[in-house]
């Protein structure tokens, strides 16, 4: 790990670090696609209830790291612990504690809003999935569109529905891959407010973002990835955006 400053929080190569209270603990995690290393020796500890943003240029490894945390892509080497349990071999119990908002909405266009949410709710074993879906649709401002087909929705509405899908099983850890990408200003505000509420509920939120200023406003902590390595890990408060931008672009 490089470029650490006095602001650095929870530098995590300390093997003796207590795992209690940690939502995520990553030790020496690396990921290779063919011959190219996209993540290299990542070490991070993220306490439960944190709000962390992963920053980095395109190809820095943000989405790959998020996918690895979501247990969609196994790491090539290293150790991943979620809520104190090894996630190197994903278990249904761990999957049930994670919600993911991806680049793509992970929804079925030819099903209605309610049908989508109930389907995913049942997959996660949610009791009374229709009732839960109705609550969430109210929360994301889509209550009046419950019977609409997803294919009729705008990008912003789909993103809000995607958040509702990810919240169906009340996950403890929310992973969001560029959740503001392609959204208009009102939708960005709506989505950031939803994520803020989630954090206020005590959930751990980790998202990837390109916007440094927005990240510093939203999150408690920012981690910058460059070429698959952590180059900066700081508390968001009192951090200069220009300094973080320099870390992102590597100058």
């Amino acid at each position: 790990m490089t470029a650490m400053t006095s602001d650095t929080v929870l530098t995590t190569t300390d093997a003796a670090l207590d795992t209690a209270g940690l939502a995520v603990q990553i030790r020496g995690l690396s990921k290779r696609y063919d011959e190219r290393w996209v993540l290299s020796d990542i070490n991070l500890s993220i306490p439960t209830g944190s709000y962390l943003t992963l920053l980095g240029a395109n190809g820095a490894g943000k989405s790959t790291l998020l996918h690895t945390l979501a247990m969609l892509n196994p790491a090539t080497s290293g150790e991943l612990m979620l809520f104190g349990k090894s996630a190197n071999r994903p278990s249904p119990g761990l999957r049930a504690r994670i919600g993911v908002i991806g680049h793509q909405p992970m929804l079925y266009r030819d099903l209605s809003v309610m049908e989508n949410l109930v389907f995913f709710g049942k997959l996660y074993g949610v009791s009374r999935p229709a009732q839960r879906a109705a609550e969430l649709l109210e929360r994301v401002g889509l209550a009046d569109r419950a019977s609409s087909m997803v294919k009729t929705f705008s990008r912003g509405m789909i993103q809000r529905l995607s958040i509702a899908r990810a919240l169906m099983h009340a996950p403890d850890l929310m992973l969001a891959d560029e959740p503001f990408s392609g959204l208009d200003v009102p939708s960005v505000q709506a989505v950031s407010e939803l994520l803020r509420e989630l954090h206020a509920d005590g959930k751990t939120v980790i998202l990837t973002n390109h916007d440094v200023r927005q990240s510093l406003e939203l999150a408690q902590r920012v981690v910058v990835l460059r070429c698959g390595s952590v180059v900066c890990d700081r508390q968001a408060r009192h951090t200069n955006p220009d300094e973080v931008t320099r870390e992102v672009i590597g100058s």
């Binding site: 979501a70 119990g93 049930a96 991806g102 793509q104 909405p105 079925y108 266009r109 030819d110």
Partner: peptide
């Protein structure tokens, strides 16, 4: 192909099912 549209397959793979 239904699963490939809009990344729906990833949604299935994230669920706590075998």
């Amino acid at each position: 192909a239904v699963e490939r549209h809009d990344g729906a397959l990833a949604g299935l793979m994230l669920a706590p099912i075998d």
